[in-house]
């Protein structure tokens, strides 16, 4: 199976997209592809706790990130520069997620055999 990097770029408010990229990740992991997930740009907002009771209803699909451990997806990177640019550098990341420099992200992409942009 292959080393696949998945780049998440969409904010959580683009709910359909964020949900469908999660399904794609789980499907790839289920057939034993080795995945690296990279949250960059507005996708870092996906890691914020959601107010599901607000006037903009959203399903708290982030809870499903907990499935990454079950699928042995250990490589979850969050672009540190994207966090800083959005004033989120102090954000406590979900378990298993690490903030990564541009250089680390570059290295991850370079070692991947396939890249999918979500």
């Amino acid at each position: 199976m292959q080393r696949i990097a998945i780049i998440q770029t969409q904010p959580p408010f683009n709910q359909g997209k964020a949900r469908e990229s999660l399904d794609l990740i789980l499907a790839l992991a289920a057939v034993d592809h080795q995945l690296s997930i990279i949250f960059t740009g507005d996708a870092v907002y996906q890691l914020l706790p959601l107010n599901t009771q607000s006037s903009q209803p959203l399903k708290a699909f982030q809870k499903s990130f907990g499935l990454f451990a079950l699928y042995e997806i250990e490589h979850c990177l969050v672009c540190a520069a994207s966090l800083t640019a959005r004033g989120l550098s102090g954000l406590s990341l979900p378990e298993g997620f690490t903030a990564a420099s541009q250089a680390e992200i570059k290295a991850t992409l370079a070692s991947a055999q396939q890249i999918i942009r979500c």
Partner: peptide, 17 residues
């Protein structure tokens, strides 16, 4: 089809998006 089929067929191919 399902995503599972996509994932299985993906093996040993080059992906272009």
């Amino acid at each position: 089809a399902g995503l599972a089929e996509f994932a299985m067929r993906l093996a040993n191919t080059k992906l272009v998006q």
